[in-house]
């Protein structure tokens, strides 16, 4: 079984994330980046599936030079090879353009049995690239899997929705997005870190994918950020220490704000 896992290199949520003043895009240089935490679950699930049978896990990313770090982490976890789609013209691409690049790269890799993604990136948090990718690859899709089994020609997943817990089946090849409930991602071992250095990483530009520069990047984006503003910090509120009357004071505050 061959699996492609799509991953994203994102600005660290623990640091001060911001935008570029010049073009309103996400600042990916002034802030430390890392493999999106939610993508670690996708990598882990792919590794488990391959370890239980056979095959290879290819990790794929679209992003600037620094995005190679995300691939490196996935290779250290145990992925077999990596593909990095990068090109100056890609800067500012929106979700549809990103999904186009991912789709073209997956076609070039050779459509696998399963494409696995995280549920969303931790920076843009749109959570729509998996659906766009399924649409472009014309694959059935199972979203938000919290449990996954693959048996011959079908994928079965459990999805814990708001009103029901569902079992979903799709024929292979398929695209699956997984939640952070599905597994506990492994930490790279020392052996894994050493082995990753020898694993193949291919770097592809737009020309390798047959994509025209006019189809991607900020200029081709179907949406644009008109303006951004830092939310003013919340005014520090009243903090009391419970001396046996904390609950009463809490109720008084609620009454003063007309909540009761």
């Amino acid at each position: 079984m061959n699996i492609v896992v799509c991953v994203k290199h994102v600005p660290d949520a623990q640091s001060e994330r911001t935008f570029n003043d010049s073009d309103n895009t996400t600042d990916r240089e002034g802030v430390d980046g890392l493999l999106s935490e939610l993508d670690e679950y996708a990598v882990e699930e792919a590794l488990k599936l391959v370890e239980a049978s056979e095959g290879e896990v290819t990790v794929l990313t679209v992003g600037p030079a620094g995005a190679a770090d995300a691939l490196k982490k996935a290779l250290q976890m145990g992925a077999h090879k990596a593909v990095h789609v990068t090109d100056d013209a890609i800067h500012g691409s929106d979700a549809p353009a990103t999904s186009l690049l991912l789709a073209k790269a997956i076609e070039k890799i050779g459509t696998p049995d399963v494409v696995i993604t995280g549920m969303a990136s931790t920076d843009g948090t749109m959570g729509v690239v998996p659906a766009m990718l399924a649409e472009r690859l014309n694959l059935p899709m199972v979203t938000y899997a919290s449990q996954l089994t693959i048996d011959g020609s079908a994928v079965t997943a459990r999805r814990d929705g708001d009103t029901a817990s569902e079992t979903i089946e799709a024929t292979l090849p398929a695209l699956v997005s997984v939640t952070d409930q599905i597994n506990e991602p492994r930490y790279p071992s020392f052996k894994g870190i050493m082995a990753a250095k020898k694993k193949p990483v291919e770097t592809w530009g737009l020309g390798d994918l047959g994509v025209d520069a006019g189809q991607v990047g900020l200029g081709a984006a179907w949406t644009k950020v008109d303006s951004f503003a830092k939310r003013p910090p919340r005014e520090k509120g009243e903090i009391v220490t419970d001396e046996g009357d904390g609950g009463t004071k809490l109720a008084e505050f609620l009454a003063s704000r007309k909540f009761i």
Binding site: R234, K236, G237, E238, I239, V240, T241, D242, G244, D245, G246, G247, T248, K249, L250, A251, E252, F253, L254, A255, R257, I260
Partner: peptide, 26 residues
């Protein structure tokens, strides 16, 4: 506590039941 309009430094097992009772009384 950096975000709050109102905060109580205390044990929720003491504070919440007392607040619940006060709300019900009101």
């Amino acid at each position: 506590f950096e975000l709050v309009d109102f905060g109580v430094v205390g044990d929720l097992f003491q504070v919440l039941p007392q607040a619940t009772e006060a709300i019900q009384a009101r």
